[in-house]
Design a protein around this nucleic acid. Structure first.
Length: 276
DNA sequence: GTGCATACCTGAATGC
DNA sequence: TGCATTCAGGTATGCA
């Protein structure tokens, strides 16, 4: 399940092999992956473009080409793999980029949730999806007054609001639980009712958790590998997520699992009391 | 603008 | 054993 740390890991591994490669051709086997523009235009535009750099914004991978940016969101299970051109397509490979030397970069996604956009360079910051994104966790503008302002009308539980990519980017369901646990905040607490100290903790532990996860190469849950053979190690460090019925590492009370905003949510009823 | 439900997908786990 | 149901989860969209 790629969240920001996984995408960061993928970006770094892709960079090593793809910089200065030319996309000689592209095949799209499942058209819904291509969100913008239409598939025919996408194929025409991307042909013969060189990959100059690869960056990340939130959970989006940004391939800088000669004339465009290719944006790729892995959603839950997307990954990139390298294959010989002659190698038969496996069931879950939906887009392939021929990068020369008999090699293809293939986009693989069991659940077909991933999306790609191809935008002209000057449009990157002004059109969706990049224009809708909030601050990176390390942005110097991420402070109490920013969060106070963004949260002031949010009557939804903080668990839901912390996942809102238009406020802070990169936090997914797993890290949301970890951040709230470390911040000792009850996941049901309304975002608008958080104290300054609690907002400060969210900022502090968002950075802490994501930095640590990046260092460890992300989290490998179920079958997710960020790239072929790349397994994250952060799952060994998870304190609360997925630990239903186990003891809280802090107070030894039993961790419970609930559903908030449709998301599986793990928390410690003692460390993260209702009043918090 | 806000909050909620639903759609998009597949495969694994669970229930009967 | 086999079939049906539930769950996992990021984001877009439509509706009240």
């Amino acid at each position: 399940m790629p969240e920001l740390p996984e995408v960061e890991t993928v970006k770094e591994t892709l960079k090593r092999k793809l910089i200065n490669k030319v996309i000689e051709d592209v095949n799209v086997y499942y058209e819904r992956i291509i969100e913008f523009p239409d598939v025919e235009s996408f194929k025409k535009m991307i042909k013969n473009q060189k990959i100059k750099d690869i960056n990340r914004r939130g959970k989006w991978l940004i391939f800088e080409l000669d004339d465009y940016y290719l944006l790729s969101h892995l959603r839950m299970e997307g990954k990139y793999i390298y294959r010989k051109v002659s190698e038969p397509l496996s069931k879950h490979e939906h887009v392939s980029f021929n990068i020369g030397n008999d090699t293809e970069l293939r986009y693989m996604d069991t659940r077909k949730f991933g999306k790609m956009h191809l935008v002209i360079k000057e449009d990157l910051l002004t059109r969706k999806p990049i224009s809708e994104l909030g601050l990176e966790p390390w942005d110097k503008d991420l402070n109490i007054s920013y969060l106070k302002n963004k949260y002031k009308n949010k009557k939804l539980p903080i668990k839901t609001v912390i996942l809102d990519q238009s406020i802070i980017v990169g936090i997914g369901n797993i890290y949301a639980d970890e951040i709230l646990f470390l911040s000792k905040i009850n996941p049901y607490k309304k975002a608008s009712e958080l104290s300054n100290d609690q907002l400060l903790n969210i900022i502090k532990y968002t950075k802490f958790v994501l930095e640590k996860a990046i260092k460890l190469g992300g989290t490998t849950i179920k079958s997710y590998e960020s790239s072929e053979g790349v397994h994250g190690k952060f799952q060994n460090e998870l304190l609360i997520h997925g630990k239903q019925k186990e003891e809280c590492p802090n107070c030894n009370d039993i961790i419970i699992k609930v559903k908030i905003g449709g998301r599986g949510t793990y928390y410690c009823p003692t460390c993260q009391k209702d009043s918090n």
